[in-house]
C-alpha cells in the first residue's frame, strides 16, 4: 500500500476511472434491463429465450468476450463498456423479471379490477413491489462489474486494473496490492450501501 501514499493522485485517477466505468456500465445496463426484464416477466415463452441468450453470454469467460469484441470495436473504454453491459444484463434482467413475477396475483388483480391500465398497474403497483428484488440485482451486478472492470486494463480502458496489471508485469507488488485492495474496498462499500437501500425499500 506504500504506492498509494507515494502516488496519491495517480491512484485517485485510476480509482476515478474505475468508478466511472462501473457507473456508466451500470446505468446503461439498467436502462436496457428494465424494459427487457418487464418483457421477460410478461411473456413466458419469449422470456425464456431471452434469458437463455443472456445466460450464454454470462457464462463466456470475460477475457474471451473482450477478445471477441476487439475486432469489432477496437480496444479501449467502449469495448470494456459493451462487455460489462452484456455481463450485467443477465443478473439485472433476471432480477427485474423475478421481482415482477413475485408480485402476488391478487395484487395485480386488484389493480386491474380497480381500473388501472396495464401501464398504471406496472408503474404504481408492480414495480414498486418488485423494487427490493430489483435493487438486489443492481447490488450483485455492481459488485460483479467492479470486479470485471479490473480486467478492463487488459484492453487499455483504465481503472484500478492498470495498477494491478502493471504491478504484476513489472514486479511491483505494492502497486498491485494497492489496486486489488481498493477494488475490494469499492466492492464491499457498494455492497453495504445497496444492501441498506434494499432493506429500506422492503415493505410488507
Amino acid at each position: 500500500m506504500t504506492y498509494l501514499f507515494a502516488h496519491p493522485f495517480a491512484v485517485l485517477q485510476r480509482l476515478g476511472e474505475h468508478v466511472e466505468l462501473t457507473v456508466l456500465a451500470l446505468v446503461a445496463a439498467s436502462a436496457i434491463a428494465l424494459p427487457l426484464g418487464i418483457f421477460v416477466a410478461k411473456n413466458e415463452r419469449a422470456g425464456r429465450l431471452v434469458l437463455g441468450v443472456l445466460n450464454t453470454v454470462y457464462t463466456l469467460p470475460s477475457l474471451a468476450v473482450f477478445a471477441l469484441l476487439i475486432p469489432v470495436l477496437g480496444i479501449g473504454t467502449l469495448t470494456a463498456l459493451v462487455a460489462l453491459v452484456a455481463y450485467a444484463q443477465m443478473i439485472l434482467v433476471r432480477n427485474v423479471a423475478a421481482g415482477l413475477r413475485g408480485v402476488p396475483r391478487a395484487t395485480v388483480d386488484a389493480a386491474r379490477g380497480l381500473g388501472m391500465t396495464p401501464a398504471q398497474s406496472l408503474w404504481r403497483v408492480e414495480l414498486p413491489q418488485a423494487l427490493p428484488v430489483i435493487i438486489g440485482g443492481i447490488r450483485i451486478a455492481t459488485v460483479t462489474l467492479i470486479a470485471l472492470a479490473s480486467l478492463a486494463a487488459w484492453i487499455n480502458a483504465g481503472g484500478l486494473g492498470v495498477l494491478i496489471l502493471y504491478g504484476l508485469q513489472h514486479d511491483d507488488p505494492g502497486r498491485a496490492v494497492t489496486g486489488s485492495v481498493l477494488a475490494a474496498a469499492l466492492a464491499i462499500g457498494a455492497d453495504t450501501a445497496l444492501r441498506r437501500l434494499e432493506r429500506r425499500v422492503r415493505t410488507g
Binding site: 402476488p104 391478487a106 395484487t107 388483480d109 386488484a110 389493480a111 386491474r112 379490477g113 380497480l114 381500473g115
Partner: peptide
C-alpha cells in the same frame, strides 16, 4: 371498472 367497486378475498391492498 373505475365505476364499479371490487373487493377480493386476498384483500389485494397494495403493501
Amino acid at each position: 371498472r373505475r365505476g364499479i367497486g371490487y373487493v377480493i378475498q386476498a384483500v389485494g391492498l397494495f403493501p
